[in-house]
């Protein structure tokens, strides 16, 4: 079993690394987007010292980390394994014929995807620290807590993306629902705008949703917006969402397997 797990987790990173062009493009996209957003925030802060309790250095750190986290994740889309594409060409049948269940196959494939995107985040973070775009973590505790939170965030994001993808078992086409999810994710995760820029009551609700668990919570911990002493609550919310979404996706997988449509032939 361990061998199978290892081989499944290797698929996504190997597929991404197969072409030098893909690696070069990902590097180009990640670096240029980080630098462009950093310049945009610096430009916005040109005539003001602090906005919503955030100074320019914190804003650039936040923007760099949030851009890294979202861009690196989006990059694996080209080789991404999904129910949607497998349903369209009928190869979804193989997911249900293998000795490993479809659910486990997708999960271990997802581990590989997460490790691959995390490698880009780590490389980007190292570069950001060298270039002075990201402030170093305030203490070892902050570094450790934000790393744990980042890991939990990856699990939450995996389940959310999977839930949307599983809709394809019922609708075949998930174009609309996927793009709608991407909009909600971009808006409510804090990837686009730090959530504390939103009006108070709205921010209070949004920070407790699973979308915020993906980007906003780990980045807020790193940037010092959530103090290590107050980290237990946000981390518990992340763990809670991991559990809820795990139970929910397991139930959806069971139903999906019972109503599988194989197209083509």
């Amino acid at each position: 079993m361990t061998g199978a797990v290892h081989r499944l987790a290797r698929i996504a990173p190997l597929a991404e690394c197969m072409r030098g062009t893909r690696l070069a493009t990902t590097g180009f996209v990640v670096v240029t987007q980080v630098l462009l957003y950093a310049e945009l925030w610096r430009a916005l802060y040109a005539h003001t010292a602090e906005v919503a309790g955030l100074d320019v250095r914190q804003a650039v750190s936040y923007s760099t980390l949030a851009t890294l986290a979202t861009t690196a994740r989006a990059m694996r889309g080209a080789t991404g394994e999904s129910v949607k594409t497998r349903i369209l060409d009928g190869s979804i049948a193989y997911w249900f014929l293998r000795p490993v269940s479809a659910r486990r196959y997708r999960a271990w494939y997802g581990v590989g995807e997460a490790l691959y995107s995390s490698a880009w985040v780590a490389a980007g973070l190292a570069l950001g620290l060298v270039l002075g775009l990201v402030a170093p973590p305030a203490s070892a505790a902050v570094a450790a807590l934000s790393a744990v939170s980042f890991g939990l965030g990856l699990v939450v994001l995996y389940y959310l993306t999977l839930l949307i993808d599983l809709v394809a078992f019922w609708t075949v086409s998930t174009e609309g629902v996927t793009r709608f999810y991407e909009f909600v994710q971009a808006l409510l995760s804090g990837a686009l705008i730090p959530l504390w820029f939103l009006p108070g009551p709205l921010a209070a609700v949004v920070t407790r949703l699973p979308f915020a668990a993906g980007v906003s919570t780990p980045v807020s911990l790193y940037a010092g917006r959530i103090a290590p002493a107050g980290a237990a609550g946000p981390l518990a919310v992340q763990v809670g969402w991991c559990l809820v979404l795990a139970v929910l996706t397991a139930a959806v997988w069971r139903r999906a397997g019972r109503r599988l449509v194989v197209l083509g032939g």
Partner: peptide, 12 residues
């Protein structure tokens, strides 16, 4: 392998 450039262009 360079298809991510489309979303990059859109974002920029």
């Amino acid at each position: 392998g360079s298809e991510a450039l489309f979303s990059w262009l859109d974002t920029v």
